[in-house]
Amino acid sequence: MKKVLLLLANGFEFFEASVFIDVIGWNLEEGDNSTKLYTCGVTKEVKSSFDQTLVVDYRIDEIDVNDFDALALPGGFEVYGFYNDAYSDKFLDLIRAFRTGNKVIASICVGALPLAKSGVLKGKNGTTYRSTVRREALQNFGVNVLDQPIVLDDQLITSWNPSTAVDVALLLLELLTTKENAEKVRKLMGF
């Protein structure tokens, strides 16, 4: 069983998180049955953008990176405190540990920024939300910013906004299983 850890910061976007939950879950039930997703946050309860609360499976300090095959990070809104958790030492250290373990890391929208701040994207190609401020921040972290919807560089996936979310989750599934399996799940989900 391939295990995906969905890392959530306070202020995360529920839609961007939900695509990972659904794609990995659809694969568990209707695809090749080889993936399972678990949620994680700095605290046991994580508040999303727009103030919904999710109780996660694990707190960061309970995670053994060796138990997981991939990390998924949705973006979020600054006004809901996204960067408070996403730029915290615990959050960044967990990202670095996944990278050290040579695991796939998938992010959506500004989920690329904690990847970049952690240093795992330094010298790599990437993208993020299509605003000057966010792209400059990514570039200032040493990332070669590309103007394309999804960028895959050395098992690191970044994307530019919520419209890319389903494709990012399916690319993650493809990297964990096969292209054929990911296409099967895509069709079953109607995309």
Results as ranks from 00 to 15, higher is better:
2 K>L: 07
2 K>M: 12
2 K>F: 12
2 K>T: 07
3 K>S: 10
5 L>Q: 02
6 L>G: 01
6 L>I: 15
7 L>R: 01
8 L>E: 00
9 A>T: 04
9 A>S: 15
10 N>Q: 12
11 G>A: 01
11 G>H: 03
13 E>Q: 15
13 E>L: 15
13 E>A: 09
13 E>G: 11
14 F>A: 12
15 F>R: 05
15 F>L: 15
16 E>D: 15
17 A>L: 06
17 A>C: 07
18 S>N: 14
18 S>H: 09
19 V>Q: 02
20 F>S: 03
20 F>E: 03
21 I>C: 05
21 I>P: 02
24 I>Y: 01
26 W>M: 15
27 N>L: 05
27 N>T: 13
27 N>E: 14
27 N>K: 09
28 L>S: 05
29 E>N: 14
30 E>I: 14
30 E>K: 14
30 E>C: 06
30 E>G: 03
31 G>R: 05
32 D>M: 11
33 N>H: 13
35 T>I: 03
35 T>D: 05
35 T>A: 06
37 L>K: 06
38 Y>M: 08
38 Y>H: 09
39 T>L: 02
39 T>A: 01
39 T>F: 07
40 C>V: 12
40 C>I: 04
40 C>W: 02
42 V>R: 03
43 T>D: 15
43 T>G: 09
43 T>Y: 06
44 K>V: 06
44 K>P: 06
45 E>H: 13
45 E>C: 08
45 E>I: 12
47 K>H: 06
48 S>G: 09
49 S>V: 08
49 S>W: 08
50 F>H: 14
50 F>D: 11
51 D>I: 03
53 T>G: 08
53 T>S: 15
54 L>R: 04
54 L>D: 10
54 L>Q: 13
55 V>W: 01
55 V>P: 03
56 V>L: 03
57 D>M: 08
57 D>Q: 06
58 Y>G: 11
59 R>D: 10
60 I>T: 10
62 E>D: 15
63 I>S: 03
63 I>P: 04
63 I>W: 00
64 D>T: 09
64 D>W: 00
64 D>I: 12
65 V>W: 04
66 N>E: 11
67 D>N: 14
67 D>W: 04
68 F>M: 08
69 D>V: 04
69 D>Q: 04
70 A>Q: 04
70 A>L: 07
71 L>Y: 04
73 L>R: 01
75 G>T: 10
75 G>I: 10
76 G>Q: 00
77 F>G: 14
77 F>H: 05
78 E>C: 00
79 V>F: 07
79 V>Y: 08
79 V>C: 03
81 G>H: 00
81 G>Q: 01
82 F>A: 01
82 F>L: 05
84 N>W: 07
84 N>C: 07
85 D>M: 03
85 D>Q: 04
86 A>R: 04
86 A>Q: 08
87 Y>M: 08
